[in-house]
Design a protein around this nucleic acid. Structure first.
Length: 430
DNA sequence: TTTTAGTGATACAT
DNA sequence: TCTCGTCACTAAAA
């Protein structure tokens, strides 16, 4: 993740801090980062589809830590995936599946200890887990938002808008997106390292990041390798810095590299760089003030004059739901975007992956399914209450399906008026 | 020396 | 039907 080898080069400007420094401030939190760390503790349960509250407990502990310091958290979750990263994601998914098979094999063979290692490698952090945290945030008045796509640009946008004063994350990509105050390596004692963009000018001569323009910085990470480019073989951040200082334009860099026999360029590299520049600068974010979808930075007018260019950009910054048709595509004109749908995604009501289905809390979903499996009598199921309603509604309502059709009576009347048991219906918590 | 890429150990929890 | 590992150490190349 992020830029390999970038953080070590910033060692000299990393400030050892405690959370006390941010007292009375609002800090953005990379929700996925915390979810991922927390999921190690309950990898078995997550992979085997068993209920667990351990990852929520991890959040609760950390949120209490912030509360003691009088810090207001603003949790930011990742949303949908970008088309440009689809190949990386299918590769990871395949790897997770392989690890899952190994984990189950080891577990069945009785090698519990080694099985855990592979269970942890096969955990899949899902939006449903995020929803579990979101439900906690709602009942405890904690700020949160689900980004339309990646959390990184969303957090930087909140910083630009002055809604937060710093970002808690382990991802060095944030600096490329333009983050001003990055807080990394936060531990349970409230100690962390702070990296400020303002301190770039104080970096040593061999890595003068302060002398680079934002565009040169983006070129640097593209050469060294980032989330959107595979980089160039034998080029790390130091070599990339030398190259960028010598030729500031990417076109010059590429023609120069092609002439030398020193480095080998992949066929797709030029395209990767182009895509990366779009993703870093113009990715879709949600503005919680205006309640509308926007972009991290404004897309320059001349860039989107041609239709072909338009299509290309949309794959990099994320496609949105069109107003009226409800179809997901690369809408340019903000007037034609269904902002209401995207507001529901931002609030965690709709699944950010498909942008249509209701986002369910993982633990509630599993509890309900377990009720179904347990073959409980009607009376006990009734205690969960409730009236079934048309989509979308808030949590705690139940929809149920029988003979392939949705019922819309109250659950109690449905069960009391028939001899149905829970095994006959498929309950959904909506 | 400097820089890059690969390897192995390692993981959570009150 | 559904989203990210990392650190310290070492060999090897420049």
């Amino acid at each position: 993740m992020g830029i390999p080898g970038l953080l070590p080069q910033l060692k000299t400007i990393q400030k050892q801090v405690t959370l006390k420094k941010y007292m009375h401030q609002t800090l953005a939190i990379d929700g996925y980062g915390w979810l991922h760390r927390a999921s190690c503790a309950c990898a078995f349960e997550l992979v085997m589809d068993k209920p667990t509250n351990k990852y929520l407990q991890f959040f609760i502990r950390r949120l209490q830590l912030l509360k003691r310091m009088n810090i207001k958290p603003y949790i930011v979750f990742d949303g949908g995936s970008l088309f440009v990263k689809s190949q990386t994601e299918t590769r990871r998914k395949k790897k997770r599946l392989e690890n899952k098979i190994i984990a189950k094999k080891l577990w069945l063979a009785g090698d519990r200890y080694n099985a855990m290692e592979y269970f942890q490698k096969s955990v899949d952090v899902t939006p449903e887990m995020a929803k579990c945290i979101i439900d906690y945030c709602k009942t405890h008045s904690i700020l949160y938002i689900v980004a339309p796509f990646e959390a990184d640009p969303q957090m930087v946008y909140l910083e630009k808008m002055g809604l937060i004063q710093g970002i808690i994350s382990e991802d060095s990509d944030l600096l490329v997106f333009g983050c001003k105050t990055l807080i990394t390596k936060l531990n349970d004692q409230g100690e962390a390292l702070e990296i400020s963009k303002d301190d770039f000018s104080a970096l040593p001569k061999n890595f003068p990041l302060g002398e680079l323009t934002e565009q040169q910085f983006r070129n640097l990470v593209c050469l060294a390798g980032c989330d959107y480019t595979s980089g160039i073989w034998k080029v790390g951040v130091i070599t990339a810095m030398k190259i960028v200082k010598q030729y500031s334009e990417m076109d010059d860099i590429l023609t120069q590299i092609k002439q030398t026999e020193k480095f080998r360029l992949s066929k797709t590299f030029r395209k990767e760089v182009e895509f990366a520049n779009y993703a870093f600068q113009y990715q879709r974010v949600f503005c919680p003030v205006a309640n509308r979808i926007t972009t991290l930075n404004n897309i320059p007018g001349p860039l989107i004059n041609s239709h072909a260019e338009k299509i290309k950009i949309m794959g990099c910054i994320g496609s949105v739901v069109e107003k009226g048709s409800g179809i997901r595509k690369g809408v340019i004109d903000t007037k034609n975007i269904d902002h209401k749908v995207h507001e529901m995604i931002a609030k965690g009501e709709l699944n950010p992956m498909d942008m249509t289905s209701i986002l369910l809390n993982r633990e509630k979903k599993i509890r309900t399914r377990n009720l179904y499996k347990l073959d409980l009598p009607v009376g006990e199921f009734d205690s969960l209450n409730n009236k079934a309603k048309q989509l979308p509604v808030d949590a705690h309502h139940i929809m149920f399906k029988r003979d392939g059709s949705f019922g819309n009576k109250s659950a109690s009347s449905f069960f009391l008026n028939s001899s149905t048991t829970v095994t006959d219906v498929v309950p959904y918590i909506v």
